[in-house]
């Protein structure tokens, strides 16, 4: 059970053409970078791996002590992705780092 709009991963499938990179990337045909969206709860539980700073920032925001925003829901870890690209008129295999969000954090 969890609040509805809680910080978590969401999928978003698109093609490289839609990104404007279709001339360079030829595979895979569909790419799902995923993204993090939602509210960071006042109590940052273990799954969020939030640092002390985020917890202090939550307290500051919660107490209304100053014009400090609450922590943001952002990717915590990423996964690489294997692609085929056209480079100098040749098709090449590449593994690109940090292409897919794997988990979310609040910070």
């Amino acid at each position: 059970s969890a609040p509805k709009n809680r910080c978590k991963l969401h999928s978003f499938r698109l093609s490289f053409d839609e990104l404007g990179w279709g001339h360079y990337f030829i595979a895979p045909p569909v790419y799902n970078p995923r993204f993090c969206q939602g509210d960071c709860p006042r109590v940052l539980h273990y799954g969020y791996h939030s640092p002390n700073h985020a917890i202090i920032q939550t307290v500051i925001n919660d107490l209304g002590v100053g014009d400090v925003p609450p922590p943001s829901c952002v990717p915590y870890k990423y996964m690489p992705m294997s692609v085929l690209v056209v480079h100098k008129k040749k098709v090449e295999y590449r593994e690109l780092e940090d292409m897919v969000a794997e988990s979310c954090t609040c910070r």
Partner: peptide, 13 residues
């Protein structure tokens, strides 16, 4: 990371 640029393009376009 690259993912951030991708997310920005998705948001804008």
């Amino acid at each position: 990371p690259v993912h951030t640029m991708v997310q920005n393009i998705i948001y804008e376009k």
